[in-house]
């Protein structure tokens, strides 16, 4: 055994501090989005929701072509059929194939959900961004307007708008966009107000960045995660609104189908032919559930501080 005092001083060598090693970073570079994706992947529920939504999109795009029927092909000799090898989801009271109608109807529902959500997102981001960036009086007036609009029952506004605009896909989209943007405006305003006085924004201002550069280089990118999370919660909201409006007869008109109008038609014969309501209802439920789970998963992945 060698004790310490057995070693002569010459046995020691001065290695000095290794400056390069001190400054080295072991982990590979990771961008914000790559890091978020890494967190998202670990969340099985959210990943499952994403897969289901992807299948849903593939379904509405291609599933109708699996069967030799069109969505408005009427065959009165085969009306109210139960599910069979010929008609996988059965037929409705006019003998139209429900499998094809459900997927074609999904197109309308998803389309409305996406377009309406994106439109209200655009309005909300611009409105909230302007209010927060200019602040003071501008902000005060703009947010009071939002609060007043919030006080008006949403469904009354939508129904009134539908009465004016008529029924159909575009009126639903417009009606939802005009009423759905307020939550987004509030979220964006809150985020930007918070970011506006952050030191990195002040630093950019000290460097001479213009207001546009501040907004588009620093403020909006740092609000993106909130915007995306809110979008995934707006889409099911829009789909649900469409389903509701079609259900009460204000939505799309026959022979065009949407999930809401299919449920509405199925309801008439619920006691005799329950599958006519069951299939579109299941698809609505799965889609909305998947969007909500995806939204939760995205929130956890994009903004880990919010996790409970």
């Amino acid at each position: 055994m060698i004790l310490r005092h057995d070693l002569p001083p010459e046995a020691f060598e001065w290695v000095g501090p290794d400056v390069a090693a001190r400054e080295a970073i072991a982990t590979p570079p990771l961008s914000y989005w790559a890091d978020a994706w890494r967190r998202f992947r670990r969340n099985r529920v959210a990943l499952g929701a994403l897969v289901i939504l992807a299948l849903m999109v593939l379904g509405v795009l291609f599933a109708p072509y699996l069967r030799p029927f069109t969505f408005d092909h009427i065959d009165l000799s085969a009306h109210n059929q139960p599910p069979s090898a010929q008609h996988w989801f059965g037929t409705d009271r006019l003998g139209r194939d429900l499998f094809v109608r459900v997927w074609v109807g999904g197109r309308i529902s998803l389309e409305i959900g996406l377009i309406a959500a994106v439109l209200s997102l655009a309005i909300g981001v611009i409105y909230g961004g302007i209010a927060a960036f200019f602040g003071g009086m501008v902000d005060n007036i703009m947010m009071r307007i939002v609060e007043i609009l919030y006080g008006i029952p949403f469904m009354i506004v939508v129904i009134l708008l539908m009465l004016v605009l008529g029924s159909g896909v575009m009126p639903i989209v417009v009606a939802f966009a005009l009423t759905g943007w307020m939550g987004m405006a509030r979220v964006v305003r809150g985020q930007i107000l918070q970011l506006r006085n952050q030191e990195f924004v002040l630093a950019a201002e000290t460097l001479g960045a213009s207001p546009a550069a501040l907004i588009f280089r620093h403020l909006i990118p740092n609000t993106m995660s909130q915007i995306i999370i809110n979008l995934t919660l707006l889409i099911p909201d829009a789909i649900f609104t469409e389903a509701f409006l079609s259900f009460v007869g204000l939505g799309v008109q026959p022979p065009v189908a949407s999930w809401g109008s299919l449920v509405s038609e199925g309801r008439l014969q619920l006691m005799q032919y329950p599958w006519q309501l069951l299939f579109p209802a299941i698809l609505i439920s799965i889609t909305i559930l998947a969007f909500n789970l995806l939204g939760d998963g995205l929130r956890d992945a994009l903004d880990p501080r919010l996790r409970q």
């Binding site: 914000y32 952050q198 030191e199 990195f200 002040l202 630093a203 950019a204 280089r217 620093h218 990118p221 740092n222 993106m224």
Partner: peptide, 11 residues
């Protein structure tokens, strides 16, 4: 700035 993290844009 004072806060070395807050003064850098995280994105």
């Amino acid at each position: 700035f004072q806060d070395p993290l807050a003064s850098l844009d995280p994105r």
